[in-house]
Structures are given as structure tokens and as C-alpha cells.
Nucleic acid binder design. Structure first.
Lengths: 267, 267
DNA sequence: TGGTATATTTCATAGAATGAAACTCGGCAG
DNA sequence: CTGCCGAGTTTCATTCTATGAAATATACCA
């Protein structure tokens, strides 16, 4: 099973880990966009532990609302406690507070979807999204994660990382369902270099056709790229001719925001 | 410690629970809006277990990004994994999908904040929020939870529960920081009865001054109230004179939505 | 009715999780 | 400079918890 690798790769060197807790987290991580509902047996098979053990883990998680059980069908889903906790986790991300006014401003000016993302385990994780007010728009939302190497949000961070780190992300493609386009090593490096030269990342239908996006990196005061700000929209509104203007304007906002971030110590 | 009661109240009858996992969940639940960042010793004191144990639990949680550690100060916060999982948990709530178009419609029509909430452990938990497009608005957001008995969202559900169940919620005020106004048993029951007669719940500065809101219940096909739809805004725009109109219009939408929900089997 | 697939309970045993204590590290004050 | 203090980390023997096999229960379908 692909999953077992995942478990080891995640830095689980098994020393100093509590096995029962690790397994409970495995149970939670079973649920994903493809399989949002699972029964006990399915979970047991996926993580390869005895169903009796899974039963006890699920009971423990359910009591605290980390999973909920469909009373009709008996399948388990992720619980409301996660939503509640996510709210707490996200409210206290400093960069979010600082970027929000800029995101609103960009959203009002361009009327397209604005994404604030970080790099999390090789994937672009959207910390915050302000949706385009227009009818045709991207349906991205907070908490969603997409492969970093094929989104403007992800590439804006990767390009300013040391090249070996960025490559490591490309190599460890433990994305649950592999997207159609994983670039070659060379194409990827070339893209990264052009992005650095340009100052902003570009994504023209990299992951999904019909979507264009530009992104700029946001840096911690020590210079490491920690997040990215991106504008994304349907290709017909963000044509290749116009996208350059978007990128350059985003760059100005990015610079201003980065100046501000320099003054903030702990991010 | 108040906390220990909490632990028992949560239905932790200790049979069929995995202790290590329970403790790990205790660690996660330590973090809240008041104390978003904690160090190991603080956590150890809060949940009353040995710091060596907490150390191992935190290490396990950190490896999987359920908590993250500030590299400077060493304090722990909730991790990004929770945001990611919340996205999954929330994407698959049937009622959310069905209510969303109605919420958008209400938002466009009234230009106020629209809340979709459920009752979760005696608190109103916002499944989804569409913010008012106006400058002055409520800053509520998805995942936030507020005391059920003092919000329109909460009361819209409570009023259609059996009275003893609703009272149980009032009694078990294990809200982390008690809001200024907990109604008396009588006032609460009277409010519930009026709400039922009226068809929609009202909240005029119940929790916070300057906020007015109205809410209607949403029912499962078997008739149990499972969620509520509410319009909330600053008092000066939602005056007591106008609020009746809001309520009655919301009622129409609520009825329509409830007809739709009857056709959906599993919620 | 019997058969299958799933969930739940029971129980003896292994070994995992635990907490005491020792150790490390860094900061601070005398 | 040195020694104290608080916080975090590691070690290790012991206990009792978590485990999986098997038995039982439940639900569904033929």
C-alpha cells in the first residue's frame, strides 16, 4: 500500500512516538476528498491494523467529535470538532492578519479570487481565500491543498527556496491522486529560474485547463519564503496578454507587504 | 480543575477508549481562543499528566502537523493539518451544499452576513458564513462557535427541540468563558415559546451589543431540527422595526429550503 | 431460514505507555 | 564567572494498557 510509505515518510521515525496516538491520527488521515466516508472495515484495511483496534480508536475519536457516524449507513466521516479547531488554528496565523487587508484590496480592484497559501508537506495549502465577486470564478477555499509544483501559489514559494529543497518537493510526489501534469526535473528548474527573474510565478492551465494565475512570494524577516499571494481566475478573463499586468501589479503589492512583514518578528 | 469535569462530561465513560489517544485529544483541546499558544509545562498542568508524557504526545502530534511549534519561543499552536482536514470535513456536509445557493441569494438581497449553523455540544457552530459586502459587518466566520442560547442561530434550533433537551443545553453551560448574559430558566423557556409561535428566532444584542439577528430552523426529513439559517448585522441597519420584515422573508426562504431538505434522505 | 458481511465484546498476553529521576541547556542574578 | 532556576529532553524499570484472536451479535439479503 502506498499509504504505508506515506506514514514513514512523514518523519515518523517511531522513536518518541505514541503508537496508539499515531494510529488514531492514521485513522483521521484516511479520510480525504476522494474517500470522505469510510466504514470500519475499510479503515482497518487501509491502515493495516486489526478491526477491533480500529473500533476502539473510532469510539475514542467519536466521543470527542473528531469523527461522526452516519446514523443510517454507519459510515464514518470527519467530525465537527475539526472545523472548530481549524477556526482556532487559522485565527492565530500572524501573516493572515497582515495580508488580509491587501487581499481585500486586490479582490476589490481586480474582482478575481485572491489566495494566501503556505507550503505544507509539498503541497500548497490555502490559508485564506477571498472569492471573486463575479459569477464565473474559481471555487478554491480555505484549507484546500493542491500540488505545489503546478500552481502559481506553490511555485511562488518553491522558486525562492534553495533549489535542492524545491526539487525534493517535486521528487516526493506523494500527492494522493496524481495530477495529470508533473513537470520534468529540467522543465521545473527552468520554470523556477524564470519565475525568480520575473519576480512572480505563472500558472497557465498547469493543473486544470481554463485556469490562469499569478503569484508572488512572501518572506519572513530572515528571508525565507513562507507564503504566497496569488490572483487566480478563468483563462478568458486573465488572458496571457493581460496576465503580465496582473503580475507586475501584484509584485508592487507583494513588495509593500514584504516590507511590512520584515517588521514582524515571529511568523 | 474545571477541565477534568469537562473530560468526563464529554461522554468519556472510559470504557472502550484508548487512553493515550484520549490524552492526545485532551492536548489538542487545550488550545482555544483565549489560549492559542501554550508551552509544554502549561499543557501538562492543564490536563494533569506528567510532562514527560505530554512531551511524547506533542512530538507525535507535531510529526503529523496537528500542532506546530514556534521555532523562536518554543510554544505550541494548533497545526495546519487541522485546517486541511476541516476543509474535507466541511466539504462533505450535505446540508451545506443545499443551503449555499439560498445563502448567496439572501446575501445578495439583504447585503448582510448570512450564517448556516448547527448545534454542537450546546454551542452554535457556524458551518458556513457569507459575509456582508458592506464595510460595517459581523466578523463571524466558518468554524466559529458561540453559546447557543444567546444567538439567533442557536435559538432557532433550540426552540424546535424537546424542551428538556433545550434546557439541558442551558444547564450544561460549559462554555469556556461565560458570556455576560445567561438567561434564567423561565426567560429562556418564554423566549423559546415565542420563537416557535413567531416561526423565527430573534437576537437583539443578546451576546454582544450592537448586533441584531434573526434565524430560522432547518429540519431533517424526520422533523428534528438540525441546523439554522440566520441573517445578522449591525443594529443600526437591522432596527427592531425592520427586523420583523427580515424574519418573515427569512421564513419564506426557510420553508422553501425545508421542502427541499425533506427530499434528501441522509443528513 | 440460513448465509454473509459487518460490527461489537471478551479476554489473555505482550509489550507499549508511563512517570520518576537524571540530565541538558540557556538565561539570569548575585 | 558561577551557580541557580525553569524549561525541555532522555533514560529506564515497572505496570497496566492496548492489542488481536476468537467468539458473539446484528443486519441484510437470498
Amino acid at each position: 500500500m502506498d499509504y504505508l510509505n506515506n506514514q514513514e515518510e512523514n518523519g515518523n521515525d517511531s522513536s518518541n512516538s505514541v503508537r496508539a496516538v499515531d494510529r488514531a491520527l492514521d485513522v483521521l488521515l484516511c479520510f480525504n476528498a476522494q474517500t470522505p466516508a469510510l466504514n470500519m472495515t475499510q479503515i482497518s484495511e487501509r491502515i493495516g491494523i486489526h478491526k477491533s483496534t480500529v473500533h476502539r480508536l473510532l469510539a475514542t475519536l467519536e466521543r470527542r467529535n473528531f469523527v461522526r457516524r452516519d446514523p443510517e449507513t454507519g459510515v464514518y466521516r470527519l467530525g465537527y470538532r475539526l472545523l472548530q479547531m481549524a477556526y482556532l488554528s487559522q485565527e492565530n496565523i500572524g501573516i493572515r492578519q497582515i495580508a488580509l487587508p491587501y487581499m481585500r484590496m486586490l479582490n476589490e480592484k481586480y474582482r478575481e479570487t485572491i489566495d494566501l497559501a503556505i507550503l505544507d508537506n509539498g503541497e500548497a495549502l490555502f490559508l485564506d481565500v477571498i472569492q471573486s465577486p463575479q459569477r464565473v470564478k474559481l471555487a478554491s477555499s480555505m484549507g484546500q491543498h493542491l500540488p505545489a509544483f503546478s500552481t502559481a501559489s506553490g511555485k511562488a514559494i518553491l522558486a525562492w527556496l534553495p533549489e535542492e529543497e524545491a526539487l525534493a518537493v517535486l521528487q516526493n510526489t506523494n500527492i494522493s491522486f496524481t495530477p495529470n501534469i508533473v513537470p520534468t526535473r529540467e522543465a521545473f528548474l527552468e520554470d523556477m529560474r524564470e519565475t525568480r527573474k520575473r519576480g512572480y510565478s505563472l500558472d497557465c492551465e498547469g493543473l486544470e485547463t481554463g485556469i490562469h494565475a499569478v503569484g508572488v512570494p512572501l518572506f519572513r524577516s530572515d528571508g525565507t519564503p513562507i507564503a504566497s499571494l496569488a490572483i487566480a481566475g478563468p483563462a478568458f478573463r486573465m488572458e496571457c496578454s493581460k496576465i503580465q499586468t496582473f503580475g507586475e501589479e501584484l509584485l508592487v503589492v507583494g513588495n509593500e507587504l514584504n516590507e511590512l512583514l520584515k517588521l514582524v518578528p515571529n511568523l
